[in-house]
């Protein structure tokens, strides 16, 4: 451990930049940048979730919008009931709404975990292109379910009138909410790194590279992949709850395949399987949306060009381009 790798230096730089950003934004009197950065942190967290399945486990899920949306709706539904003082259900036992983020996050994580377990149970029996299609199909099912469910806004979505509360933090101030999201993003990144280095991570990486070998040493690849898929879905679900709070609005579009694509694109842009890949990807994604989105509504054309370049010439994404190929041991 004499010297830091280029990737570690890049990661430290990205960490410091994200922490410093709101202070810079305030200094140059551009508070809007903090909102942009909050989007980066939230989409980054969603990507960190997907990256565990996609990068570490090789599970190409094209349905992570399902977990993102379930997390979002968990936040929206709990908050709307709290606002209207109506219980979610009264029998067999009383469940009331809440505006406490801690409870909302917990519900979002559990709900998206259950959905990921059910989707994983069926779709992990397939692999390759069938896995991509079946995860897409499940997410679209939830999307159409949300559209046709009038109780929570249906197609029009559901507004959260006041941002939910977190301990003593003023969540309506941009700084407060940004640091909550950033903290959770780094928590997610830390969890990913921990998992990857653990026994479970060793088994998961083996499942990606050589399932035959993993079975031959006596570990069922299915169980390992299902566990990873659930943890992955939970992280993306938590990001969904934050996203709902950021926009103070939840709509079925959070569940649509565009969202799945968006999360996947930012992971690929940043670098599949790289610890900070999702964050780097989210930064690029939001920058493109901000810069080119101001010039033309067809900004995704430029994003497409960059994605093409990454897929053709820089397989390790932006992180790989700057820090070189991933090191293995």
């Amino acid at each position: 451990m004499a010297s830091l790798s280029r990737e570690s230096i890049l990661n430290i730089f990205l960490t410091l930049a994200m922490v410093a950003l709101p202070f810079v934004a305030t200094a140059i009197d551009e508070p809007f940048y903090i909102t942009l950065a909050t989007r980066v942190a939230i989409l980054g967290l969603a990507g960190v979730g997907l990256n565990l399945a996609l990068g570490t486990g090789g599970l190409v899920s094209f349905g992570h919008a399902a977990f993102f949306g379930v997390g979002g709706y968990a936040a929206g539904i709990l908050a709307s009931h709290a606002l209207n003082y109506t219980p979610i259900m009264e029998s067999p036992f009383l469940i009331e709404g809440t505006n406490q983020m801690l409870i909302i996050w917990l519900v979002a994580i559990i709900a998206s975990g259950i959905v990921a377990y059910l989707i994983g149970l069926l779709s992990l029996r397939t692999s390759g292109v069938y896995f991509i299609m079946i995860t897409l199909a499940f997410a679209q099912m939830l999307y159409y379910f949300a559209i046709s469910w009038p109780a929570y806004g249906g197609e029009d979505g559901l507004s959260i009138y006041v941002r939910n509360a977190f301990l003593g933090v003023n969540t309506l101030a941009p700084h407060g909410f940004y640091f909550i999201c950033l903290g959770l993003l780094f928590g997610g990144i830390f969890l990913s790194a921990t998992l990857k280095n653990s026994r479970f991570g060793a088994a998961l990486q083996s499942a990606r590279q050589n399932e035959e070998r993993l079975s031959a040493v006596g570990v069922r690849p299915f169980n390992i992949k299902l566990t990873a898929f659930v943890i992955s879905g939970m992280m993306t679900g938590l990001a969904g709850a934050l996203f709902a709070d950021l926009n103070r609005f939840v709509s079925p579009s959070m569940l649509s395949w565009h969202m799945s694509g968006e999360i996947m694109i930012l992971v690929i842009l940043g670098g599949v399987g790289r610890l900070y890949g999702p964050l780097a990807g989210a930064i690029i994604y939001i920058l493109f949306e901000f810069i080119f989105g101001g010039m033309t509504e067809h900004w995704q054309f430029f994003l497409g060009l960059v994605l093409l370049g990454v897929v053709l010439f820089a397989r390790g994404g932006v992180i790989g381009l700057i820090a070189g190929r991933a090191r293995h041991d």
């Binding site: 921990t194 998992l195 280095n197 653990s198 026994r199 479970f200 991570g201 060793a202 088994a203 570990v219 390992i224 566990t227 041991d329």
Partner: peptide, 10 residues
């Protein structure tokens, strides 16, 4: 077990 999530195997 392979279901240990936190300790670094190294």
């Amino acid at each position: 077990s392979s279901f240990r999530f936190f300790k670094n195997v190294r």
